[in-house]
Amino acid sequence: MPQQRFPKVEVLSVAPHFISFILSETDTSMANAIRRIMIAEVPTLAIDLVEYHENSSVLNDEYIAHRLGLIPIRFTPEGSMRRVPGGDCHQAFLPHRECVCYDRCPRCSVEFELDVNFDRVNQTRPEQERDLPLTVTSTDLKSNNPLVAPAHFLNEEEQDESHDEGISIVKLGPGQHLKLKAFARMGISKEHAKWCPVAVATYRFWPIITINAEACGMLTMEQKQELVDACPDRILELDEATGNLVPAENAYEMATFTEDLKTTQEAMKKRPEDEDFVSVVQSTDRFVFSVESTGAMDAEDILLSSLRVLKDRLNYLASEVENGLK
C-alpha cells in the first residue's frame, strides 16, 4: 500500500535572482534533499579550461584561470517564454565525459575569446581616463554560442541604474596584453563550487507559537512586556487594545528558537510545574525556503531543476532495483 505524501507549496516572493516559498506536508528528509540538490547537483556551465595566447598582466595564468572559473555563466533556453520544468542547461549540453568527441565540441562546451590590449584600448579612451589602469571584465569574454554569456544583471533597467561594468578579472597597465580562449563545460558543484547555481539555499522551520491565554491572564502588563522583550528575534507583540500577547505577523521570518523566552518565563512562574505562558516549537512538516541565485540561472529554475534532478535520480534507482538486483 502506497505511503505517498502530497506536499504543498506556497510562494512568498519571486524575483529573477531570488525565490522564497513555504514547503509543507512533507518532512525534513524531503526539504533537506531539495536544499542539498540545489547546492550541489543542479548542473550549470562554468569555465573549466583556459588556453593562453598572451598574458603579460601582473597575475599569473593559473590565477586568472581560477577567476574565470568563478564567473557565473548564464544559459538562456531558446524562446524566452519557455516553461520546461527545470529548464537548465542539461537539455542543451552533454556532460563532457559522456560526449563522443575527442577533445571538445559545441555539444559539450562553449568557447569564449578574450583579447584586451592596453595600448590599443588606451587610444580610444576619453582624455581624463587616458593611462589609468584598465580593468578587464567578464563583458570582454566573447561567447561563440548566442545562448550563453557571462551572467549579468537580469534586465537592462537594473543595468543602467547600477553602471555595472561586469565582473573584474584583472587590471592592465601600459604595454600589457591579455589574450586567451576559455572553454565552459557543464558540471555540478559536487566537483567544484564554481558550478554551484546558488549563493544561498536554506530553509528554516515554521514556528508554532502557542499562547496560553488563561495563564497569561495572571501576568501584569510589565511582565508581558518583559516576555516580548525576552525574544531577541521579536516574535511576540503586545496588543495595545486588549493587552494580550499575540504572535508577530512575520514571526516565521524571525524565529530562531532560542532559550531566552523559556528562562524568562520560568522566573515568572509561581511554581515550576505551572504551565508555560508562551511556547515556541519548530514545526516538523512546514519549512520556509530562501534561495538566492548566483546569476547563472533564475532562482525559480534552480528550484524546478533540483526537482528534475531528484526525479531523474529516483527513476534511475528504481530501474537499478528492478533490473540490477536479484
Binding site: 505524501r5 506536499p7 526537482l307 526525479k311 528504481a318
Partner: peptide, 23 residues
C-alpha cells in the same frame, strides 16, 4: 525499497506540479 522509491518519485512529480502552479 521499490515501493519507497516509487512513493518518493510520485511525491516529486506532485511537487513539480505544485511548484509550477504556485509560481
Amino acid at each position: 525499497l521499490s515501493a519507497a522509491i516509487e512513493d518518493l518519485s510520485n511525491e516529486t512529480d506532485h511537487l513539480i506540479t505544485q511548484v509550477t502552479e504556485a509560481i
